[in-house]
Design a protein around this nucleic acid. Structure first.
Lengths: 238, 238
DNA sequence: CGTGCGGTTGATCCGAGTCAAGCCAAGTGG
DNA sequence: CCACTTGGCTTGACTCGGATCAACCGCACG
């Protein structure tokens, strides 16, 4: 499918060793045996973002990549008239940016105050080229992200508003592996939920109040409690 | 966009040797200098699919991965009640399947008669582990796919029916870099377009006939001619 | 205090889904 | 050869879910 990138080509001469890597990088290399990404990112410049600040824009040339240390980021894309879609949310530990590409294709904006380690993309790529275990780690993440994005495509393309909202709640509940009766943090505004689900703020609000009848309680904004997991799963659809 | 098969890119220097690889692999290893994936896939078992046959199912354990040689495949995901979303289309040269994961998360079905080279996933993973240039190629593809999937999320989440259909037409036109007045092949049924766009068959049909007024002609099913590119871009939105 | 922001709720509208009929071209079998 | 079926597509009438528009609530903050 055309979602597949292709094939083809690629890798031509690669047997050469990595002349351009510095001695410093080589020492890192040893450290990488345990956890390539984590170690590597200790080399980056740290970067603080306040809630609402944007790290990179959709059509910008992709200059930096990074690793999120604290806080939450949203990845978004928008139409000319301002309609916005959230493409994903980055949690601490997630990799952000677009290595090996001209532009990122999406904005990256802080949902909360955040701290990252960032690198010039070119330097990162060069380093990655010398460290297969780093590229392997990136590959695993990319495949994971791809799977997540695709399952969200099903939601956006085919699910009703109720199913979308229920799915979101379940996802947050599962991610925080909360049991029935426990409060689950939902650190998004109604607008952000709407942008994630391809709905409007009003519809999200209505569905939430609707669910209060059978499946959840809303002790406060930005948190909820699942009172009937089965009912919620029913609402979320297949 | 997501119609693109990938790119080719490729390679930076890579230097470890491959202790666990067999002598046979070592000889392959040499061959990889030119085109890692293409060469590698000559080792696979070839597999023929007739139009409509399914290579793997959504919830199956992911046993095989492969490389498409001829024909078109669709990647789909469905809800219990049968609503289906096409997540992507594989063109010749594209990689299919889900390495490094338990299940593929999507079905793979032939849109036309097709021929692939397939591998047991475990064998493929082992081989990839020894060939960083192969993993690098996979990484590039995965990142590309991810970008394509995300741009489709914007369409599914925020675009109107007209915008969706116009976007699809433009994408096919661009992919075949056709100029105004040239026929563009659109090798999908109306149902498949609908599944791709998150619409119904009737809506797709209506939008196409609507566009006949200003922007396109439909010489036959499965082909169209852009008569006014600017108008079509206008319809496709931002 | 007022003011602004995030959220809820209600009334109304409209775009796309649903249901149904019919067209056309390609089989298929008598 | 012709009657009949079948599958993909179009078109129309109607419905309905979610968007839009608007009022209002509650709370934090200057």
């Amino acid at each position: 499918m055309y979602l597949e990138t292709s094939v083809g080509s690629s890798a031509s001469g690669r047997a050469n060793d990595c002349a351009s890597c510095s001695a410093r990088s080589q020492s890192i290399c040893a450290a990488l045996t345990q956890n390539a990404l984590a170690e590597f990112f200790q080399l980056g410049r740290t970067c603080q973002l306040k809630r609402g600040e944007t790290l990179m824009w959709e059509s910008d040339e992709a200059i930096v990549v990074g690793n999120l240390r604290e806080g939450l980021l949203k990845l978004t894309s928008s139409l000319d008239d301002g309609r916005e879609q959230i493409l994903g949310i980055a949690f601490p530990g997630d990799f952000v940016g677009r290595p090996f590409g001209k532009t990122a294709g999406h904005c990256v904006t802080a949902l909360t105050d955040a701290r990252l380690c960032v690198f010039r993309r070119s330097a990162f790529e060069q380093f990655a080229g010398c460290h297969p275990e780093l590229e392997h780690a990136l590959l695993l993440r990319a495949l994971d992200e791809l799977e997540r994005a695709r399952s969200w495509m099903l939601l956006l393309g085919r699910k009703s508003a109720s199913e979308r909202v229920a799915t979101l709640l379940l996802e947050f509940a599962d991610r925080q592996d909360a049991r029935e009766g426990q409060r689950v943090a939902l650190p998004l505004t109604r607008q952000q939920m709407a942008d994630l689900l391809g709905l409007t703020i009003e519809t999200v609000s209505r569905k939430l109040t609707l669910f209060k009848r059978h499946a959840i309680r809303l002790p406060d904004l930005h948190g909820f409690i699942v009172t009937d997991r089965t009912a919620l799963e029913e609402l979320a659809g297949g």
